[in-house]
Design a binder for these strands. Sequence first.
DNA 1: CGTGGTCAAGCGGTA
DNA 2: TACCGCTTGACCACG
Length: 312
Amino acid sequence: MRVCLGYVALALPLPSASKTLTYTNYEKLGSNALPKLNDIILNNFHNLKEILKYNYANNVHFYRLSHHLIPLATHPSVHFDYIKNYQNYWQEIGLFFKKYNIRTDTHPDQFCVLNSPNKEVLNNSIRILEYNKNIFNAMEIEGKVILHVGGLFNDKEKAIQRFIKNFQKLDKTLQEMILLENDDKVFNIKDVLKICETLKIPMVLDYHHYKCNNEGEDIKDYLPRIIKTWNNSGLMPKMHFSSPKSIYAKRSHSDYINAGDFIVFLELLKNFTDEIYIMLECKAKDDALFRLVRELKYKTNYKFINETTFVV
DNA sequence: CGTGGTCAAGCGGTA
DNA sequence: TACCGCTTGACCACG
């Protein structure tokens, strides 16, 4: 099995590409607000380019874009054309992704709730999805958006049906962009798998969330079906992996990956797929990735193709 | 100079 | 019932 590792949003040695501006501060600035916003955006673009160069130099070909690249892009009261105003920057970033062969996706924060019974929340969620579509289009890359099912609203079956109904009403271009991930509290792998099979969309298994939220099901019984959801997507399957902070704070993410647990997972996974992209979700970001690789090189005889890709 | 509260938005869970 | 985490950082008031 060929494994390709990736990390999320920040490269520790470099400045952040997701500096933000809150609406309150934006309003306080008066006529200086848009120039300030513009400064922050240009800075984020610059820092993102540096992160992509850093990724390429370190053989990282899987990287999640922070969706805070453009602050206030989806705010109802802030009007600016975040695509046209920065067309050259989008093109340039897109070229970096293509030239460096870096697979990417985004993961909107908690306000994107596609199964909300509240119309305003739903509309806002769609606006967030459109933002993602717009930036992928501007960069001319095939990015995907990873979503959770959303809220429980006291009735899981109804909540699932509402997700399905709202998904089916989305524009086809938005539908094609969405991947669905199991969460750590409500929608477990069985729930998400059922939705993914119904809607024919790929499922992103989050192993850490599975550990937090399950009904005693054995992951190996579900891996074949999870992998199968990727069959007609034209994409290599991807999963998320992280380690719990402690046995007490089980849901929190640890700074680093527990290499032993990771090896056990890979040894199981290799029975079900020939290729996997694994996004590591750790506080220590790229550092966690490189540290894990050093440990794998020492503890296993995996054959390394480059710094972040190897064969199990 | 360092710390803690606040910021557009939603949920479920815990004390 | 009120806060916490999810993710993640700026900026302000305060000590």
